[in-house]
């Protein structure tokens, strides 16, 4: 109880932010019907997310696959279970590591871009200008970014997953002397439909939360350049934590339900 009283201000500020974030999100969902009006902005955002994040996400996925194959490969070899490497790598990457690593990298890459862009627009009164001239910044700035993220995060994650599994295969072949066909057989054999459902749903949910949180942080920016820096940091940290929490919820709750 003492902790609550001592941190009353912080708790109130957090509750207020959550409330404002919820209002903004509801407002944005109400505007989803205006997709056609904003299709150019959505396509531009999709292009930006796709082209600018592809390299970092694929590179992230590739190294996760390589490290995972090496780590499990050497341990499995001790028990004579080297053939299980493919299965472990594919399951680990498709279900957990691929979406999480991609989510974290995209939270940093796309989230910081959203917050800094919208934050500097806020500081230079461009958001006020939009509202003053009768245009809704949520419809014009948040909605396109959210839709573009939801659409683009899945193919980016799939490419990261693919790069990770291929990386794992080459490492197994080169350093563990595991035949590529054995690796692939194990990798595909161990997969179930629900692995794919869970693995493919995560990026869509991450895309929604990363984009809305980063846009919200941008819209709340105040305090000049220092404030903008603070907003970007808060955006990346909050989005990353939310990615991990959602991943836990998917793993524990959704997996058990399915």
């Amino acid at each position: 109880m003492d902790i609550i009283i001592r941190n009353k201000k912080k708790i109130t500020a957090l509750a207020e932010s959550l409330q404002e974030y919820s209002f903004m999100t509801v407002e944005m969902i109400k505007k989803v019907s205006k997709i056609r009006r904003n299709k150019t902005a959505i396509i531009e955002e999709m292009y930006t997310i796709g082209t600018q994040s592809l390299f970092i996400v694929v590179l992230g996925g590739l190294f996760v696959g390589i490290i995972l194959a090496l780590e499990v490969g050497y341990r499995f070899e001790m028990f004579g279970a080297k053939t299980m490497v493919g299965r472990t790598v594919s399951l680990g990457i498709l279900r957990e590591l691929g979406p999480v690593i991609s989510g974290l990298l995209l939270a940093a890459r796309t989230g910081s871009k959203n917050t800094s862009e919208i934050g500097s627009m806020k500081l230079s009164e461009q958001l006020d200008a939009m509202r003053a001239f009768g245009t809704d910044p949520v419809e014009k700035l948040v909605l396109p970014r959210m839709l573009a993220s939801v659409v683009m995060f899945l193919p980016l994650t799939l490419l990261a997953d693919f790069a990770g599994i291929v990386g794992g295969m080459f490492v197994s072949s080169a350093w563990l002397s595991l035949d590529k066909s054995i690796f692939w057989n194990a990798a595909l054999y161990g997969l179930q439909m629900k692995d794919l459902y869970v693995g493919f749903s995560k990026p869509i949910v991450f895309g929604f939360f990363i984009s809305t949180i980063s846009c919200f942080m941008g819209m709340k920016t105040s305090g000049g350049t220092t404030g903008l820096g603070r907003s970007v940091i808060n955006s990346v940290v909050t989005s990353s934590i939310v990615v991990l929490i959602i991943d836990f919820i998917f793993t524990k709750v959704v997996w058990e339900i399915m």
């Binding site: 627009m121 009164e125 461009q126 006020d128 200008a129 509202r131 003053a132 001239f133 009768g134 809704d136």
Partner: peptide, 22 residues
């Protein structure tokens, strides 16, 4: 906010920092 939009469309504003889109 939504009800204000039609009214705001009758008002022009020149901001102190201009607020032009960079």
């Amino acid at each position: 906010e939504n009800q204000m939009m039609p009214l705001r469309k009758k008002i022009g504003i020149v901001f102190q920092g201009n607020a032009l889109f960079d």
